[in-house]
C-alpha cells in the first residue's frame, strides 16, 4: 500500500515542481521567482522525505533538515535587495493631492533608517549589477501595467478622499 501511495505522491510532487518551474520562467518580477524557487526547494525536500518513508531508510534526513533551515535565507536576502521602480509611477495617492507633481526620487525598498538621504538607489554597484539587470528584464511591461493600474487606483483614491 505504501508503494502505490508513494507513486501517487511523487507524481503529485513532480507536477507541483513543474508548475513552480514554469512560474520561475514566466514570473513577471523577481519576487515571484523567489517564491517559486522557495516552493521548489521545499517540494524537493518533501520528495526526499517521501522516498525515505516508502523505502524505509534514513539517508536523506540531513538534507531535509538543511533544506528546511536554509530555504528562507534566499527569499530574505533577495527581498532585501529588490530594486525599486521610480516614483513617477507611484500609485498611492497623497492626501494633500499636491504631491503628485513633485519631482521624484527613488524610493528604497527595504530602507534602513540610517541610509543617508542623498543616496540614489539606482546607482549601480558592480557587485550587484547582474542582479539589477535580471530584475529589470521585464521592466517595460511592468511600466505599462503600472500606468494602467495607477489610473484605476487614482479613481479609487478620489472616491476615498471624498469619504473623509
Amino acid at each position: 500500500m505504501l508503494e502505490t501511495a508513494m507513486l501517487i505522491t511523487q507524481t503529485l510532487l513532480g507536477a507541483a515542481v513543474l508548475c513552480a518551474v514554469v512560474r520561475v520562467f514566466r514570473g513577471p518580477s523577481v519576487l515571484d521567482r523567489v517564491i517559486a524557487v522557495d516552493v521548489t526547494l521545499l517540494v524537493v525536500s518533501s520528495m526526499l522525505l517521501v522516498d525515505m518513508i516508502a523505502r524505509d531508510h534514513r539517508d536523506f534526513v540531513l538534507f531535509v533538515i538543511a533544506g528546511a533551515m536554509i530555504g528562507f535565507l534566499g527569499a530574505v536576502a533577495i527581498a532585501r535587495f529588490v530594486p525599486v521602480r521610480r516614483t513617477e509611477q507611484v500609485a498611492r495617492p497623497h492626501p494633500t493631492g499636491a504631491a503628485a507633481d513633485q519631482p521624484s526620487t527613488a524610493r528604497t525598498a527595504g530602507a534602513e533608517p540610517s541610509r543617508p538621504t542623498s543616496e540614489v538607489v539606482d546607482e549601480e554597484d558592480p557587485a550587484t549589477s547582474w542582479f539589477t539587470a535580471l530584475a529589470r528584464s521585464r521592466r517595460e511591461q511592468q511600466r505599462q501595467d503600472d500606468a494602467r493600474r495607477e489610473h484605476e487606483a487614482d479613481s479609487g483614491a478620489h472616491r476615498r478622499e471624498e469619504e473623509r
Binding site: A5, T9, L12, L13, A15, A16, V17, C19, A20, S46
Partner: peptide, 13 residues
C-alpha cells in the same frame, strides 16, 4: 502521504 502531495500540487497550481 497522498494528502501532502495534494497540498503541494495545490501550491504549484
Amino acid at each position: 502521504l497522498v494528502i501532502g502531495g495534494l497540498m503541494s500540487l495545490a501550491a504549484g497550481v
